[in-house]
Design a protein around this nucleic acid. Structure first.
Length: 566
RNA sequence: CGGGGCGUAGCGCAGCUUGGUUUAGCGCACCUGCCUUGGGAGCAGGGGGUCGGAGGUUCAAAUCCUCUCGCCCCGACCA
């Protein structure tokens, strides 16, 4: 491809709207343009990267026996009503009516459509297992699109779905996907982790996320370097540092106007780890008192899994239910359900006395109150691994893929059944698996860039090499550049030749910005000696080679295995 | 949805507080010519905006007021 013919518009300055590195660089280097919030145009360079990623996706999906199909982005509401998600999902679903007044929606994911298809086409256990996938657009009316291509309202997704006869089959399909995902992200040159994740509204028993560590990521993941435990903070278990058990006897202490843990802690000159925070919540059925240690934060999502959907109680409700004003609530003498964090299994604490302006010192869990014990705090750095007691690490990351075991959540309502060997009708066991190609591209940039621009992993760069004839008006330069260009293409290498009549500085700057991993520099002085330069974008190391040997040397530098070309 | 910031030429910005001396300005980009060719050159000439939109105040509005649309960031949410 010729630079002069290709639509490449680089920007010298950082657009004011961009903050994330990948967003800034994709804009500046001419990969994308923004149409509206969360809606992006992919320019010629951008689509080349996406296509290369998609090629890897297809190869690895096909390798585990998955079959490509394509489903509509526009869905009738009925299938979504049958699984209930039409009603469960709120504003995030784009809804519309067709000319006949029928409710429709734009597909945010395709479990319903797959189950619909399976219900019609799968009849016997002999038809199973199946893995179907597509690389197609998803539409979600995100509350807050952000960080360029990292969170958008319309995005490409490789989504696959497994159909199995039983749980063992699902486990196999799940493992096949986990394996394929490892290969995909490795081939894309990403640093990533597979972590346990919350199945959330997708339903089902087990789920994992693939996370590319980056400060631009929206997720936090917790790691144990000793036993390998890795999980999203949304469900990560941890054991907070123990507080020394004091020799207190149970006594009331006066704490006038001191309501928050912070205030009482300062007032009594005691660390927050000696306090019990008591939070009254109203779940769908009943009030629940949640207890966490004063230095811990209550984790809403963990609690949802235990008591279901809930909200904080209003001030009046606190008085009505517990008979005391907020700020002086303690765990003792209540008749309602109490859920305490695991860190409160033992120790001795201070908490509200259930009496205005008084706290109780010397409270012992078990003796003074009883509660259900669950991990309901937010795991943080320095906490200990719940499995092996090693200090945990926390890292920010971009979610680049996820895998879910769904079970029968979709097959039952959509009547996707098959007949087993005994002629019995059984629901198909499903799994669903997603990867966002744009997030792979953005994560690759977040993980690989420098002051001058992008440094693409070879496998997903828009081109393998960029040819830089510095002075295109010099006849010899032009002639050698053209020959090299043709020879490289013939050798199966994808080349961008900067054939513009620009000064050397401009070409260098653009080449570094665009980030093609290998640069071939043709300067007049070197050419006179029969030499060209092969320069590595990442290390900036350059080697001079004899023109005649250039093609072989370049082929040697490019990692062909990475591209799956062998 | 709550909080904050911002909309002036393709991009980055100044002007707005104290309305009129601005036919709205600067840098980059763009067009023409000369010159230059190893890290976003130089000189000369030139084109382009009516200040997000609507309404209002005023003799006079980019500047003041009201409404509205859009974008970014933090939070909530996130199948």
């Amino acid at each position: 491809m010729r630079f002069s013919k290709m639509f490449i518009t680089t920007l010298k300055e950082t657009p004011a709207d961009a903050e994330a590195i990948s967003h800034i660089l994709m804009l500046r280097a001419g990969y994308i343009r923004q149409l509206a919030a969360g809606l992006y145009i992919y320019l010629p360079l951008g689509i080349r990267v996406i296509e290369r990623i998609n090629k890897i996706l297809r190869e690895e999906m096909n390798a585990i026996g998955a079959q490509e199909i394509t489903m509509p982005a526009l869905h009738p509401s009925e299938v979504w009503q049958e699984t209930g998600r039409w009603f469960e999902i709120g504003d995030e679903m784009f809804r519309l009516k067709d000319r006949g007044g029928r409710d429709m929606c734009l597909g945010m994911t395709h479990e319903e459509i797959i189950a619909w298809l399976a219900a019609r086409e799968i009849r016997s256990y002999r038809d199973l297992p199946q893995i179907w996938y597509q690389i197609q657009v998803k539409l979600r009316d995100e509350a807050r699109p952000k960080s360029g291509v990292l969170r958008t309202r319309e995005f490409l997704m490789k989504d696959s779905y497994s159909l199995d006869a039983d749980e063992e089959g699902l486990e196999r399909s799940y493992q096949l996907h986990a394996g394929a995902y490892h290969k995909i992200f490795s081939r894309c040159g990403l640093k990533f982790y597979m972590v346990e994740s919350d199945p959330g509204m997708m339903g089902g028993a087990k789920a994992h996320e693939f996370m590319a560590p980056s400060p631009a990521g929206e997720d936090e993941i917790v790691f144990c370097d000793s036993c390998g435990y890795a999980a999203n903070v949304e469900l990560a278990l941890s054991v907070p540092k123990k507080a020394e058990t004091k020799n207190w006897v149970l006594e009331e202490v006066s704490t006038p106007e001191k309501r928050t843990v912070q205030e009482v802690s300062n007032f009594l000159q005691l660390g927050p780890e000696y306090f019990i925070k008591s939070i009254l919540l109203i779940s769908e059925k009943t009030p629940v008192l949640a207890l966490v240690r004063g230095d811990q934060e209550l984790h809403e999502k963990k609690l949802i899994r235990i008591i279901g959907k809930h909200r904080q109680a209003h001030e009046e409700e606190v008085k009505e239910i517990l008979g005391v004003e907020a700020g002086f609530i303690g765990p003792m003498n209540h008749k309602i359900r109490i859920v305490a964090d695991v860190s409160l299994k033992e120790g001795v604490y201070v908490s509200g006395a259930n009496k205005p302006h008084y706290h109780l010192k010397g409270i012992r869990p078990g003796r003074d109150f009883t509660a259900e014990s669950h991990d309901i705090h937010i795991a943080k750095r320095g906490d200990f691994c719940a499995k092996c007691n090693t200090p945990l690490r926390v890292e920010q990351a971009i979610e680049i893929g996820n895998i879910f075991m769904l079970g029968t959540k979709y097959s039952l309502p959509l009547k996707a059944f098959y007949l087993d060997k005994g002629g019995q009708g059984k629901p198909i066991i499903m799994g669903s698996y997603g990867i966002g190609p744009a997030r792979i591209a953005a994560a690759a940039i977040e993980q690989n860039n420098d002051r001058d621009g992008i440094i693409w992993p070879e496998s997903i760069a828009p081109f393998d090499v960029e040819l830089l004839p510095l002075n295109i008006k010099d006849a010899k330069t032009a002639e050698i550049a053209e020959k090299l260009y043709k020879d490289l293409i013939e050798a199966g290498i994808e080349v961008l030749i900067d054939d513009r009549d620009e000064r050397a500085g401009v070409k260098f700057k653009d080449a570094d910005l665009i980030g093609i991993p290998t640069q071939i520099i043709l300067g007049e002085k070197n050419l006179k000696e029969g030499l060209i330069e092969i320069k590595d974008r990442r290390t900036r190391e350059a080697v001079k080679v004899i023109i005649e040997e250039a093609v072989e040397k370049i082929k040697g530098k490019i990692n062909f295995t990475h591209k799956g070309r062998i």
